[in-house]
Design a protein around this nucleic acid. Structure first.
Lengths: 343, 343
DNA sequence: ACGTGTTACTGACACGTGTTAGTATACACC
DNA sequence: GGTGTATACTAACACGTGTCAGTAACACGT
């Protein structure tokens, strides 16, 4: 590999100082350089195919122009993978727009939870997007207190760290309202995950509020708990089917879990939506291709990624928005499993 | 934000020179430092919570310890997104293992095709994985000629650039052999994409060879061309159904295309596998949840990512393997759509 | 003729680290 | 007692850039 040209080489070729090269190539405003010289520098740079060295630039400017997306893998791995392409595309598009690069850093289950800290402390990045944060992470709180730019994807109750998430409660309410509007009165629910997860509590709360709004009692007997995967949905539905008074509709707060629930129905010779109406949550790629096609609450993965990156970059550049807790709206996607189209 | 500690601060606190700090913290071999001093330095670093500055380190060492994954978006965007989580996880895991970071850089359709070149020329990364390369990319050939470490995901016929890909031809042969073993003799094919794509040609060739092997003639009348998406599959199947002698089985070289084809069958009141056996290719996440569950050729996305990263890192570190064209094996996943379980 | 301001540049420092060449001391060997 | 060698460190350079302070040349108004 031949030696890379440096700004010194460009300067030599254009017969100016290195300073002038820097001033011209960076288009520094309010500086007087004659058009001829300017032209000579540009020509020399072109001729040598000169690209400034990123490391040197980072060092002297103190800016890495990089943000990291930290992706915690855990029991919800498969669930979260469904949003990765959209989220990543949103984040990279926003980053690109503001001149930032994206460093992708998954944290595997066998790594310490704070393995990402070196990215911040070692100045690898100007800021971090943390997806799937844990509240017991003291390193996280420390960094935030020191003023290091952070944005969470998901929520951490109790801390005022900037975050981007979907409005889970509203989403769940929309789903249940839809079932109510279709005439259902015995509506069950299967959560997406145990209630230790904030999103689970919020979706459950949305279900409760929608019932309340319709003047229906909340009955804990009609609620089962999913655990991210298909199998948990199958078991939960099994359990609901053994009730004396079976619900006529079930809101399932995760599409993956709903897939298992639908399988349980089939195994019992029951059909959706005729025997039981189903509404899911997430709108994973598979949802539209299921039989019956799953009515579900769409989560805007691209928007979450974009929002997180944009918020983070604003914080980095000191342009603090007055609202740092961003909640995106969901959208109900009506397909077949709710029965809206059969009547 | 309080001033970050530097190695000078650590040196001062431990009452040694900055050199000694560097030697101790980097565990430089064959250097004599007394155990007491060593301990003092480590303690000082711990106390100050010192992390070395990544930019400075990069500049002086000439190594970025970063590899970029360049992700071309194009007409096949949806198709390729299906593999992103697996590929990315494989690549990051391998990178991590060797101490590298991953920079993710999608190239949007509205960007110039060689927008990624600055990553190499500007020394942002030590090497690149290019996914979805275009053969008309002269910048690519230039960089390769200059010895810049590159690995392609996918193939570029004619150039000897290191690459990692799936063995498309073998995969297709396995699929068609399976249909042959089930007794089918009139087997059609729908390609995954136009023949301008290398993978399409290879999968078609696998189909042809499997027929030949069984002593059956290749009949171009039974071949239709998909174009990545569902709709192209629907149309292709429509066309096959209008044949006088309908095939009894169809090998569809892309699951997304197969989804459209299955829809066409349903629209005609036909059932798979009873009226027509189907085998797909890719094993996207949705495949197992379709009705009927799609028999398909599994593409090891994780392995592709891992393989690409590992190969690239070896090249970067000058440890050239003798085979730089890596072809991973596929695996046939037998589900319902092929009819293997009904007989 | 003289001060003032503008134009067009340049010299030198700083960023924080890894590393090479070198120094001072202690110790062993004949 | 001198020579050689291992030990335990350090001073100084280099990486390639952005930028501040400074300088020389020249125009302009009085």
């Amino acid at each position: 590999m031949p030696d890379r040209p440096t700004s010194r080489d460009v300067a030599r070729l254009a017969r100016v100082s290195r300073t002038t090269v820097s001033l011209v190539l960076n288009n520094v405003p309010d500086v007087h350089i004659s058009p001829e010289t300017r032209q000579r520098v540009l020509e020399a740079a072109r001729q040598l195919n000169y690209y400034p060295d990123a490391s040197a630039r980072r060092l002297v400017s103190g800016k890495t122009s990089t943000i990291a997306l930290v992706w915690h893998r855990g029991p919800d791995q498969m669930y979260r993978d469904a949003f990765l392409p959209g989220l990543l595309q949103g984040a990279t598009r926003a980053a690109r727009r503001y001149g930032y690069y994206i460093l992708f850093r998954p944290i595997e289950p066998d790594e310490p939870d704070d393995a990402w800290v070196e990215l911040a402390r070692g100045r690898h990045t100007d800021g971090l997007i943390l997806s799937g944060p844990r509240s017991d992470d003291t390193a996280l709180l420390d960094l935030h207190r020191e003023g290091f730019p952070l944005v969470l994807h998901g929520q951490l109750p109790g801390a005022d760290i900037p975050s981007v998430d979907v409005d889970n409660e509203q989403g769940a309410m929309t789903a249940v309202r839809h079932l109510l509007a279709l005439g259902h009165r015995r509506i069950g629910m299967i959560t997406n995950a145990p209630l230790a997860y904030t999103a689970s509590r919020q979706r459950l709360e949305g279900y409760r509020r929608a019932l309340e709004e319709a003047g229906l009692p909340f009955d804990a007997d009609r609620v089962r708990y999913g655990n991210f995967d298909e199998e948990s949905g199958r078991q939960a539905m099994e359990s609901l089917l053994s009730l004396e008074e079976r619900p006529t509709a079930v809101f399932i707060a995760s599409d993956m879990v709903a897939i298992g629930a639908l399988r349980a129905l089939r195994e019992h010779g029951l059909r959706a939506p005729e025997d039981m109406a189903i509404v899911g949550f997430d709108d994973i790629a598979t949802a539209r291709y299921l039989t019956p096609a799953l009515t579900t609450v769409h989560v805007p993965a691209f928007g979450l990624g974009w929002g997180a990156a944009e918020l983070l970059i604003r914080i980095i550049e000191g342009d603090l928005p007055n609202e740092t807790q961003v909640r995106l709206e969901t959208q109900l996607v009506v397909r077949e499993s709710c029965g809206a189209h059969v009547r």
